[in-house]
Design a protein around this nucleic acid. Structure first.
Lengths: 181, 181
DNA sequence: CGTTCTCTGTACCGAACGGTAAACTGAAGT
DNA sequence: ACTTCAGTTTACCGTTCGGTACAGAGAACG
């Protein structure tokens, strides 16, 4: 029996592993056991090894947010774009049951390895949200602070929800942030 | 030449390593090179190995917050206790230049290993702050949400400050939270 | 059929991992 | 002086790490 994968099937599985275990906690053997792929296949898809796997995963996460969060914020009318963002965020983070890969990578020395990808993700999120708020009539200086506060609040809510083992913390925080905008 | 340490000198050094590298990223060899202690000394102080080192470090961080944040919140008059908290937090996290060990441990599977310590740290913080707010006259239901929001906001600010490489994010967030209470 | 190309399985490498054992050093206690 | 004991040093253990090499499987195409 021989199961054949394509790279596109593999990336989300690996993403979930990095999300659960962090960069250093993720070993090739954990990846092989959770994906069913041998090292040969893994290195066929990712010649750069573990670092390329993580970089690809980061790019995929970034792509998802770009398409379902940042772009709607830029393109749609402000209220609509922001509503899309709330729904997408709640969905993506499974209402607090899932953690942010990019945020997790940011906390330890893994950040240095992927600094530009990590910075870019958050910077574009904040910028897109700020611009939407400004287009919606908010004072530019306030909008910048509000956007920062929303993104930071989401990250903090994920940390706290997981620390307390209580996803409801995330839902509550999201509601509060929603009300404030 | 023979340098002799006491355990009390060693714990803060190890704490800083775990903070920088995370649990999985911290190896005994990194600890020996950054502390100057050989494995023998390390295992003399911590017979339980790496896990006991991390547990000790968590307990020390918890002790610090208990003494300089949670206790003042419970003991002092509310406004004073909260003021002490802001100063201690800003000081401890080096105005955004340092990350929260407990929050970092919470994000990956390391949380499972130290679940009760991690949950306890955040639960006691939120509880102490909530009670101080109630004693200060805030409606109990609002106080609970506000306390949660403050602790979560601090964690999020640390994540975002480090992700963007900009400690000012932390300072700004702290000011905002301060104003809101 | 034969070739080509993508993907897989397995065996292997040196290095680093967490951890152990035991001999040693030096100061304090008697 | 002799013991005791906290702390150090060094060598070593088995395992796992990330990474490599390479033969083989199987569909696609001529």
């Amino acid at each position: 029996m021989r199961t054949v994968y394509e790279k596109a099937d593999v990336v989300p599985m690996i993403a979930e592993i990095f999300r659960d275990l962090g960069y250093e906690g993720t070993s090739l053997s954990r990846i092989t056991e959770r994906t069913g792929l041998g090292k040969g296949s893994l290195y066929h898809f990712f010649p750069g090894g573990k670092e390329e796997m993580a970089a690809t995963v980061l790019a995929e996460v970034d792509g998802w947010f770009e398409r379902f969060v940042f772009e709607p914020l830029r393109r749609d009318d402000p209220a609509q774009g922001i509503a899309t963002m709330w729904a997408a965020v709640d969905d993506y983070f499974r209402s607090g049951g899932r953690v942010c890969l990019v945020g997790a990578f940011a906390l330890d020395e893994t950040r240095d390895r992927f600094a530009t990808a990590i910075r870019g993700y958050f910077a574009r999120w904040i910028e897109a949200l700020r611009d939407a708020l400004v287009r919606g009539g908010r004072d530019p200086a306030d909008a910048a602070l509000d956007a920062e506060e929303v993104v930071l609040g989401i990250q903090g809510a994920l940390v706290l929800a997981r620390a307390l083992g209580d996803p409801a913390v995330f839902t509550r925080a999201l509601d509060r942030l929603k009300d404030r905008l």
